[in-house]
Design a protein around this nucleic acid. Structure first.
Lengths: 231, 231
DNA sequence: TCCTTTACATATTACATAGTATGTAAAATG
DNA sequence: CATTTTACATACTATGTAATATGTAAAGGA
C-alpha cells in the first residue's frame, strides 16, 4: 500500500527535475549510480534511527524509493550494501584530514581549539551514529564486523598520523600526544551518541567546552615545558 | 542436541552441591528464585556478547540451563525479562552510591580520585555494556526503550545528587560541579564500551589517567578559587 | 494420601526477514 | 530497427524467532 506510492513519487520527482530528459531518460550508468547512492544513503539514515539490527532490506529499499529487487541487483546482499556504507562513511571522515592539515600554521592553542571543534562537530553530527552502529551493531555478523573493525583501525591510525603532523612542534613524546587524541576521541564518541540519540542535546555544549579547555591546557603545557624548564 | 545436555548438566550440578537435599528438593520459592536469577544473568551476559538484537529467548534459556518454556513461565515475554535485567543492573550500580558517601571526609583531591576510580572500574567492568545495550539497543522496542530511558534518567539524577553531597565543600556553582560529573560520565561510557568490546584493553589505562588528572585539577581549582582569590 | 498448584519441557503456530526466481521495460549495441 | 543487456518490480521460498498450547513431574497443602 505504501511501497508503490513511494516508488511513483520518486518517479515523479525524477521526472520533475529541471531537465526532464536527463531524469526520465538516464543512462544505465547514471541510473545505477543514483539508485546505489539512494540505497546507501537510506541505509545510513536507518542505521542512525533504528540501529544495525533494525535495518531491513525492505525498509531501506522503500526509503530509497525502490524495491528489494533493485537492492539485490546492485548489492547482492545486505552485507555488501553495508560495505558500501562503510566506504562512504570512511571517505567522508577522512575528508576532514585535509581540513586539519590546513590548520597547521595557526598558533598552537588556536590550532588545537579548531581541530577539536571540527572533530566535535563531526561526532555530534548525524553520520557518526551510523559509523558506531557499523562497528558495534554488527558484532554478530562475523565477517562484516571484522572488516568494519579493520577499517576503523586504519582510519584511526591515519588520524593519529595527521594529528602528530599538525602538532609536530609540540615538545612531548609522540605517545603523550597520541594519548591526548585518544582521550578526545573516546570522549567525543560518547558525546556524539548522546547528542544524537539522547533526550537533551542541550547538555552537549558545556561538556564540549570542558574538553576544549582540557586539551588546550595540556597541549600548551607540553609546549611550554621545554621553554619554561619545568615539568 | 545441545539443549538437553545443558539441562542435564545443570541438574547434576545442582545435585552435586554440598547439601544434596537443598538442591534436589528445593521449595517452589527457591526454584523460582534460582531459575529467574539464572535467566537474568544469562540475558546480561548475552547483552554484552551479542547485543540486544542478538539476544534470543532460546539462547538465554539454554545458557541458563532451562528452556523457553521456563522463561515464559517466569517472565511472560522477552520484554519482561529485560525489565528484570534493567532492575538488577540499576540496583548494582546504585549500590556504588553508598560506597561514594563513605569517601565524603577524605581530603578533596584524594576523594575525587577515589570516586572517579570507582566509577571507572564500574564502566570498565562487564556489566556496563549490558546497560548500554538496554538503553540504545532497544530503540526499536518503543515501550521497553521508554522505560529504560526513564530509568536511566532516574539513576543519573540520583548520582548527581550524591556527587553534589560528596563535594558539598567545593565552592562552585552546582551547575559547574554537575557539568564536571557529566563530563566524566560521558568519557567513561565510551571508555567502558571500548574496553569491553574493543580490541586492545591496554589503551585504557593512559586515558583513565588523563581523566583522573583533569578532574582533580578542576575540582581543586574550584575549591581554591575562594581562598586564593584567583579564578 | 489425595488433590491442587507450581515449575518446568516439548511441540506447534504465527510472523518477520534475507535471499531467490522470474518477468518486464528501458537503455545500449549492432 | 532488431537484439542483447541492464535495471529494475513482483512473487515466492527458506529460515529464525517470539509466543502459545499442552503435557508432566515435583512441591505444597487438606
Amino acid at each position: 500500500m505504501n511501497t508503490p506510492n513511494a516508488i511513483e513519487r520518486r518517479r515523479r520527482e525524477q521526472a520533475a527535475t529541471p531537465t526532464p530528459d536527463k531524469r526520465s531518460r538516464r543512462s544505465h550508468e547514471q541510473r545505477s549510480a543514483e539508485t546505489q547512492s539512494a540505497l546507501v544513503e537510506a541505509a545510513i539514515e536507518m542505521l542512525r534511527e533504528v540501529g544495525y539490527a533494525g535495518v531491513t532490506t525492505a525498509a531501506v529499499a522503500r526509503r530509497a524509493g525502490c524495491t528489494t529487487g533493485a537492492m539485490h541487483h546492485h548489492f547482492g546482499s545486505k552485507e555488501e550494501l553495508m560495505l558500501a556504507v562503510l566506504t562512504r562513511l570512511s571517505l567522508e571522515f577522512e575528508a576532514l584530514y585535509l581540513a586539519f592539515k590546513l590548520l597547521a600554521d595557526l598558533p598552537l592553542s588556536r590550532r588545537c581549539e579548531k581541530v577539536v571543534e571540527m572533530l566535535a562537530d563531526y561526532y555530534i553530527g548525524p553520520r557518526y551514529v551510523a559509523v558506531w552502529e557499523l562497528y558495534v551493531g554488527t558484532r554478530c555478523e562475523r565477517s562484516l564486523n571484522e572488516l568494519c573493525v579493520k577499517n576503523r583501525k586504519r582510519v584511526v591510525s591515519k588520524l593519529e598520523s595527521v594529528w602528530l603532523q599538525i602538532f609536530a612542534d609540540v615538545e612531548t613524546t609522540r605517545a603523550d600526544l597520541v594519548a591526548l587524541l585518544r582521550f578526545a576521541l573516546t570522549f567525543l564518541r560518547s558525546l556524539g551518541l548522546d547528542h544524537t540519540l539522547g533526550t537533551d542535546p542541550g547538555a552537549t555544549a558545556a561538556q564540549r567546552e570542558i574538553l576544549r579547555a582540557t586539551l588546550v591546557d595540556r597541549i600548551s603545557a607540553s609546549a611550554s615545558a621545554r621553554k619554561g624548564g619545568r615539568r
